[in-house]
Design a binder for these strands. Sequence first.
RNA 1: GGCCCGUUCGUCUAGGGGUUAGGACAGCAGAUUUUCAUUCUGUAAACAGGGGUUCGAUUCCCCUACGGGCUACCA
Length: 505
Amino acid sequence: MRKVRVRFAPSPTGPLHMGGVRTALYNYLFAKKHGGDFLLRIEDTDQTRYVPGAEQYIIDALKWCGIEPNEGVGYGGDCAPYRQSERKPMYKPYAEQLVEKGWAYYAFDTSEDLENIRKQAELAKMPNWQYNSISRMTMKNSLTLPSDEVQRRLSAGDPYVIRFKMPRNEEVRFQDLIRGWVVFSTNELDDKVLFKSDGMPTYHLANVVDDMTMNISHVIRGEEWLPSAPLHVMLYKAFEFEAPLFAHLPLILKPDGNGKLSKRDGDRLGFPVFPLEWTDPATGAISSGYKENGYFPKAFINMLLLLGWAPGNNQEIFTEAEMIEAFSIERIGKSGSKFDPDKTRWFNQQYLRNTPLPELADLLLPLLSEKGYEVTHEYAQSVAQLMMERAVFVQDMLEGDYLFVAPKSFDQEAVAKRWKVGESGSLMKEWGSVLNGIEEFTVENIDVAFKQFLADKGLGMGAVMPLFRLLLTGTLTGPAAAQVAALIGKEEVIRRIDSGIAQLG
RNA sequence: GGCCCGUUCGUCUAGGGGUUAGGACAGCAGAUUUUCAUUCUGUAAACAGGGGUUCGAUUCCCCUACGGGCUACCA
């Protein structure tokens, strides 16, 4: 068996969306699992669709996800360059080689010619005109034109393309690693352009030439490529080169309705479709990213792993090592998967809970200074400990400001419901002096004092606790009041009680 | 339209000729919690339809329906 070498080969036509990330992930895991190579190749043969910044975005996004290539654009390697625009001179000889072997031919029909023919065919209720084994004999190409005419045009510099000469009445079959045998008849395939009149190869040629010269063993790519796989198989045959094994991944579908997940769905349904935030250089429109929304890259990747692949047991949370160990192409599903934003949140929650306190504190600190709160690392850890159970994202732990500053206002509804002017104030005043008498201001001691206080007053918890909480935090929800109190410290607690009473009466 | 691919709870999926068709997310209901959240327990929820093959089909085959992809000098 060939050494495993796989590639992720996006076009820099925009930001990489999560479907692309999943494709990259599966390639990466497959390579790691088999001790192979994972390369990043940039397929920028269409100059008209080039988007500035997209390539860097792809590299950055993969890096953030932790699925880094060990070869390719931005990483170097023996097969450099990895950007197809930089490999431009390589392709023409391959195309010409195919012409010499009789697998391809020059065609001089202009885009306008073809457009007209398609239009006419449509009018004649033949909606799907193809440049193929039949129609090519009526077109302007090196098969129909006298050879001196072809030579004349070529040396005169007339624009031309090179088309693949798809044979007639043949069956192309190949074994897809996910779908099993897939069969196409060459009669349904057209004479695809391999080499464009602008001197660039098309995707098909460049892709095959690069996969050959980079010694790619397995092509793992999206299902949208399945229809062109037979052409690629034919190209390998024409080049007399061992074709890689193919695996065509099912698509990621939009959560509602039908169709594949698109850029617009994110804005429409309120979740990111891109790993990183992206600003469209042409329009300035911003598309949100998982990173900026507060997702852990590992949670994002873990979610993607399970979107179309299942381990066979019920494991859902995977470390990278476990992913690599468990992954196999055979266990990739055949049908498209609807993306589920809720489940994605759930993954993040799981990862948040599994993050050690010091790390959470590290993440919290910058968010805090953004809000103008400078606290110690130790304090941030305590905040994390108190809040992590009720958070999905790191930023959720900062929802209330009351762990850092006295409440500026009080929940009006809560006040109306719980606070009795005069009565509540004097009760809290008494409770305040009890608290003031506590030597070691710990959760346990506060609890003990509180129970004693209730007993002395002959009151139930519900009559006192909400008032205390209200003065402390301004709301009636959140972690246990005693825990908040212990965290912010006795002096601050007393201060808040006093100022709260002063405000509420 | 043509070609190709697909179809198990609402969603992601496990399973596979004889199963109480399993798990997770979301939902619902209880319990715990001073509150919210968490947690726990429980509950509802699926083999697209029709033909075969077979003692038996959700599982294998065919057809239909539905869904998706492709159908450019785009990738």
